[in-house]
Design a protein around this nucleic acid. Structure first.
Lengths: 408, 408
DNA sequence: CGTAATATGTTGGATGGCGAAACAAATCTA
DNA sequence: TAGATTTGTTTCGCCATCCAACATATTACG
């Protein structure tokens, strides 16, 4: 129970080589408490004291400030009581909110997520054809404009997060290349910021999925996890290492969909051959299932119903390649958990144990020892939560700082 | 600049609270300064002020403390002077030192490294046969015992770091499996600590190599780099992500030597097939070069002298597989630099540009855009420096804390 | 049913590190 | 030689935190 977060202790494993840039994991204690409440939902003041390692009195004054700032509120102690004076419960205020935008090949989804990670609102706007960046921004801006009066009266919106299936430079919000959307060098964050007046940030969808699963989903509490999502637009990946999202120098890290899994494999749109994404795709599964379209759960049902030799063979083939990619990832990252989303989760669920045993036999003893494979837990809310987290980041780092005021 | 990181900021940590110790933020900043001086060698006080973002006066008092603690010393300003009052130069005291131990299949090397990263002493003890863990510990203990009087009079030894070619659990110092040494579940850190009285820590050699190159070598200043070392005992890897070594849940991360590079490849000792380590090895290169043994630079010379079709073909074959592994790594990590050591550096040097162009064509545009490939810079000192860093870690996190006193 | 034990909130005071400002020192420029 | 510039030094005030003592709310127990 001794806090994994402790007041004012330098991390012994990370001695900063250069102090020229602020370490983003360092926060003041106000931020620490806000993050705890946001990510864990409901905690008593006593629990917060234990988790932070701060003094009772300090936590008292800090919570007082957060109450004044209307970031959290306290309620009477819960029914289940122990010996001693009951401790009030601290809740995140869902009226502190962030907007989330997720453009896909057939729709643009806009969501509103409150502090604490609950999706308050989700609007899916189906598009006739693949939206251009401009169209996606226009759609998002229009939907947000429609919500505007409600947002202004009932919420404090901290910003907008955009989850894009492609390479995104998180620092400047430019989509470098989103192959399935056909976007190149689109400054979506800037465009949407211009259109709405809110501060906007963009990132890769799978990276945000990884963060969402880390904080609120199947991987909650883990510090090292790999998230892999399989959808119509290929396979995206996000990696959490030591509690933080792996970003790389430009924020492009985590492209596990392009892991090499087959010699003389088919050419991939990325320019290489034998990528996981080209060998493992959901289209053939949908065909075998006799479905024209649909989501992962429909696919799973249809494949289970239609179990035949050809289905079994194709599933086995895809699981085999997935196993190779996972073996690599496990040897590379030594994670505690692998979270599979979309049709990759279906593959795992259809042949339970196959991936596990494939990992045990292929990956090295040490790294593979503790790995567990999960199916993703958050479903369609995941992208909203992950994208909103992007918009919350700045606020969580400084909850007492100036609240951004939209200037449309 | 950075002012906000330092003052009165806690940092989330994975270590339990030693709540009894006071003044955590001062310790933080002391640690910051000590690390800067250690890793950058020589800096003026003015530079330290800029780098840390701390106030002039604060840096003054902190440096004063470090001088009192005999961690650093100041000298007169350097000759090259600008407008304004010259700023004294701060040097790390090399008498603050750490011991380094590196067992290999044919030798055990023991080194002494001073604060600032300079190798003060290096003793290579050749062994008749592959040393057992016990033998390696005995050798190291004996050599250290021989140095003991000098250590006690002229140095303050912060501990011992052991670099082991294999899977090492950094937390408990147990070598899980070192295939080429034939070690399994050997608590080397505990054994050596028992034998010498110094606090001992162990880690994977390539991981430590990565840290060494990051802090003092070819990758100095980078925040995202991949280090790959090819030696007689296979291929080891270490990854620096966002300025910190990638460890994974048990510290086994970074095993890039077992990246999948070939379908239906040869079986590897790790249990899988098609590993980089089985397809790319130095033994065939040594054969072609007509050498029975030797180091990387000898190999390079011999291969250059003996250039023939068979040499060219084998080099091309190995570079091809290395390219696949690097492509994976680049897509996964989006690093700024790749540092190749040992015979992998030779491969790169023999066919300059091949790896680069192979990366540009295979890896994705975004991630590969900024990558540069380097040959390792530190040579045989690297392991000493990396291992010593392991022993310095605790000291760097709390330079004012209790200095460990050996109790033999 | 009342007292003890336990856990936690609350308050006031003490601590200690840091930044700001004013001043001093050392160098370059003109 | 005077001014500009940069940096070390000193003093002072701030403020987040911890500590200790006290208050409060609940369970445990006779």
């Amino acid at each position: 129970m001794v806090a994994d977060i402790v007041a004012m202790m330098p991390s012994p494993t990370r001695t900063p080589a250069t102090a020229s840039e602020p370490d983003p994991s360092r926060r003041n204690n106000l931020a620490l408490l806000t993050s705890l409440v946001h990510h864990n939902g409901v905690l008593s003041r006593a629990q917060l004291t234990k988790r932070t390692g701060l003094n009772r009195s300090t936590v008292g004054t800090l919570i007082g400030q957060l109450v004044n700032l209307e970031v959290v509120y306290e309620t009477a102690p819960s029914g289940e009581s122990q010996v001693g004076r009951p401790s009030p419960i601290v809740h995140p205020r869902p009226s502190i909110a962030a907007l989330a935008v997720n453009p896909e090949i057939d729709a643009v989804t806009i969501g509103l997520v409150g502090l604490g990670g609950k999706v308050q609102k989700k609007i899916r706007f189906d598009t006739e054809r693949i939206p251009t960046a401009k169209e996606a921004v226009n759609i998002a801006a229009a939907v947000i404009a429609g919500m505007r009066s409600e947002l202004d009266t009932s919420y404090r919106v901290m910003g907008v997060g955009i989850a894009v299936p492609g390479l995104v430079n998180r620092d400047d919000g430019v989509v470098r290349h989103a192959p399935h959307l056909g976007w190149r060098n689109e400054p979506v964050a800037g465009m949407l910021s211009e259109a709405t007046g809110y501060p906007c940030h963009a990132a890769n969808d799978a990276s945000l999925g990884a963060e969402g699963e880390l904080l609120f989903g199947a991987g909650a509490g883990q510090k090292n996890l790999i998230y892999l999502n399989g959808g119509a637009s290929g396979i995206g990946g996000g990696v959490i290492a030591d509690g933080a999202l792996l970003r790389g120098v430009s924020g492009y890290a985590g492209e596990l969909g392009h892991t090499f899994v087959r010699s003389s494999g088919r050419p991939c749109h990325c320019g290489a051959t034998g990528c996981l994404e080209t060998e493992v795709s959901q289209s053939s599964l949908f065909e075998l299932a006799g479905l024209g379209g649909g989501d992962a759960s429909q696919l799973e049902q249809a494949l289970r119903a239609k179990s035949s030799e050809s289905v079994t063979a194709e599933v086995a083939r895809q699981v085999g390649y997935l196993g190779i990619a996972l073996r690599n990832a496990v040897n590379t990252f030594n994670p505690e958990a692998i979270v599979l989303d979309g049709f990759l989760g279906v593959l795992h669920s259809l042949s339970p144990g196959t991936l596990d045993s494939s990992l045990r036999s292929q990956a090295m003893d040490g790294p593979s020892g503790q790995v567990k494979i999960y199916q993703a837990a958050l479903g369609s809310d995941l992208m909203m939560i992950g994208a909103a987290e992007l918009a919350f980041t700045q606020f969580l780092a400084d909850p007492a700082g100036a609240f951004p005021t939209p200037t449309p």
